[in-house]
Design a protein around this nucleic acid. Structure first.
Length: 338
DNA sequence: CTCTGGCA
DNA sequence: TGCCAGAGG
């Protein structure tokens, strides 16, 4: 998922509290997907209410957003709209691998292979319309704004940062840079402890900030060339050149100057190249949004989570107390909150 | 993922 | 008090 250019980029580790007072545009799809794949029982089943509705994302939003709001962050979720047509192959591939994972999950479970089962359970996570609708409902009740992007969420979020309506984008993907976001925070919605693969060891994962301009200067390229590198490696909209990873791609673009030149020299072709480049540079975005952070509507949250989805009233109330305390007007450091 | 309860 | 394992929905 996303473009694999991370190893080219320098980053600095931060604490969530370093983002105090920052407006952070959260890539909703990315975050919900993380919640759905990570918040699971030991056998791989996601959290569900008594009706069988998946609730992992609701748990993630409630607790994680309460924590970052408590740290002074002003989050705004940015949801995807209609994907560009060049994404259809990627979307088809994702659907296929998800269905494949579902089958393998069942198989592994029947054979009693716990670790396998868990892996395939995670890979079968899907952000569907209900998940999106539920998430928006909870965010609204919690007083956290969201924006509906006309096209890609990361493109809209990057636009909001460039415009000055937000300070940073939070996403695990690097695509935000291709859309021109000056700053990206990783591990904001998934920080905490993470298990090392194959080992029973947990490491602390801290948020990190990546600065676009700093990295372009360091690499000696401009944003257009970063997009070219991404196109060599492969994006959501194209396959990438065979056997070319980020380091080779960097060298190719620095040697030849542009992707067009690289393709010419190698006698290769990338379908829809011009359209994709143009899309990264000026994607469809909107000004039709208003960012306003409210105190949580405790009654709405409780009736939605506890009434409709079987959350424990004790736990929800406790989270709401913390949320109310940090988003309330009584906080001197948070004057802008209402 | 985060929260909680039990135990050193 | 701090850490870990298990639960949460």
């Amino acid at each position: 998922m996303g473009v694999d250019i991370g190893e080219l980029l320098r980053r600095s580790t931060i604490e969530v509290s370093d983002l105090s007072l920052d407006i952070v545009a959260i890539d909703a799809y990315n975050t919900l997907y993380q919640f759905l794949s990570i918040i699971r029982q030991r056998d791989g089943t996601p959290l569900k209410d008594s009706q069988g509705n998946v609730t992992s994302h609701l748990s993630g939003i409630l607790y994680r957003m309460t924590n970052i709001v408590e740290a002074g962050v002003k989050p705004v979720f940015v949801f995807d709209g209609k994907p560009p047509e060049w994404k259809s192959a990627t979307i088809r591939k994702r659907t296929e691998s998800r269905e494949n994972a579902k089958v393998k999950w069942d198989e592994a479970r029947e054979k009693g292979l716990a670790e396998e089962a868990y892996k395939y359970a995670q890979a079968s996570a899907k952000v569907d319309a209900t998940i999106v609708e539920d998430s928006k409902k909870l965010l609204t009740a919690m007083g956290i704004p969201f924006v509906d992007a006309p096209s890609e969420g990361e493109a809209q979020a990057a636009y909001m940062v460039k415009k000055g309506d937000a300070d940073k984008i939070a996403s695990q993907d690097y695509d935000s840079f291709l859309f021109g976001s000056p700053l990206v925070v990783r591990n904001l919605t998934v920080s905490g402890k993470r298990k090392l693969p194959k080992k029973n060891i947990y490491v602390d994962v801290k948020p990190e900030v990546i600065d676009l301009k700093e990295n372009l200067d360091e690499l000696g390229i401009d944003r257009s060339q970063l997009i070219d590198i991404a196109l060599c490696v492969g994006t959501d909209y194209n396959e990438g050149l065979e056997g070319v990873g980020p380091k080779t791609a960097l060298k190719l673009i620095k040697d030849h100057g542009s992707i067009e030149k690289v393709l010419e020299v190698k006698g290769l072709d990338i379908p829809n190249l011009e359209d994709i480049k143009e899309f990264f540079k000026s994607p469809d975005v909107t000004d039709d949004y208003s960012l306003k952070w409210d105190k949580p509507d405790a009654q709405a949250v409780v009736s939605f989570l506890c009434g409709e989805h079987d959350f424990s009233e004790d736990r929800v109330t406790k989270a709401l107390e913390r949320l109310k305390a940090s988003s309330g007007s009584g906080q001197s450091t948070l004057d802008k909150w209402f």
